[in-house]
Computed example of a mutant assay.
Amino acid sequence: MFKGSGEEFLQEKYKTEKRAKAFYKNQMLSYLNETMQEFIEAQEMMFVSTSDSNGKCDSSFRAGDTGFVRVINENMVMYPEYRGNGVMASMGNMMENPHIGLMFIDFFHSRNGLHVNGKAFIYENKELDTLQLTKKMRDDIRLKEGGKAERWIVIEVEEAFIHCSKHVPKLQKATKLHSGNNKGGDFFKVKESKKEVEFNR
């Protein structure tokens, strides 16, 4: 069994200590600087990573109107949870293990990304008053979210660092939605697969 963190072990093994130290020193913060805050407030989507108390991982996608992830201050952000499939996978993990990773990527302009790691807490709508939100933010939430947000996830920031644009594709927004069913439904034909398994038993 190795001593120290897995990062440190592999940096030594693969001789990347010098590059890693430069990255920690020049690219990583324990808070969100002004440029990072502006980047988050300009995004329409992000990826969320969580794990349960046994370390079993889950990744999920979140999206909304521009600025749906709101920066409370340099140490705290929040995002709305909308009506979903009812499984509560991400929030269930948060109940067991509060550690969370957010990944924002600007696919349309800079192609840079931002990692935000920290601890997540579930807030009901009625509990938002306990947060130090500005009047402008409260009004913005009331105007843009209305009754859409069923609850909120508040993250205490512990790490923030860049994901460089290398290998990130540049995308172009569609001018209109494609016709047909865009909601997904049983897109992967799971019901059909389960019937086949039952039939073959």
Results as ranks from 00 to 15, higher is better:
M88H: 09
A89T: 07
A89K: 07
A89P: 01
S90H: 03
M91C: 05
M91T: 15
G92H: 03
G92V: 10
N93V: 04
N93S: 04
M94K: 00
M94W: 11
M94V: 13
M95D: 02
E96W: 00
E96A: 13
N97I: 04
N97D: 09
P98G: 00
P98K: 04
P98H: 04
H99Q: 13
H99W: 08
I100R: 02
I100H: 00
G101R: 00
G101D: 06
L102T: 05
L102M: 11
F104N: 01
F104E: 02
F104G: 10
F104P: 09
F104R: 10
I105C: 02
I105F: 08
D106I: 00
F107W: 10
F107E: 02
F107H: 12
F107R: 05
F108I: 10
F108V: 07
F108K: 06
F108L: 11
F108M: 06
H109K: 12
R111H: 07
R111G: 03
N112Q: 13
N112C: 05
G113P: 06
G113Y: 05
G113A: 04
L114K: 01
L114Q: 03
L114Y: 01
L114H: 00
V116R: 04
V116K: 01
V116Q: 01
N117A: 05
N117S: 09
N117L: 08
N117W: 02
G118C: 11
K119H: 00
K119V: 00
K119E: 12
K119T: 03
K119L: 08
K119G: 01
K119A: 07
A120S: 08
A120N: 08
A120G: 06
F121W: 02
F121T: 08
F121I: 11
I122S: 03
I122R: 07
I122L: 14
I122E: 05
Y123W: 11
E124M: 10
E124Q: 15
E124R: 09
N125W: 01
K126E: 15
L128F: 07
D129Y: 11
T130Y: 12
T130E: 14
T130C: 14
T130I: 14
T130K: 12
L131Q: 13
L131I: 12
Q132H: 15
Q132L: 07
Q132P: 14
L133V: 12
L133M: 07
T134E: 13
T134P: 11
T134I: 14
T134S: 15
T134F: 13
T134L: 13
K135Y: 06
K135R: 13
K136E: 15
M137K: 15
M137G: 08
M137N: 13
R138D: 09
R138F: 12
D139N: 15
D139K: 15
D140C: 06
D140V: 10
I141Q: 12
I141M: 15
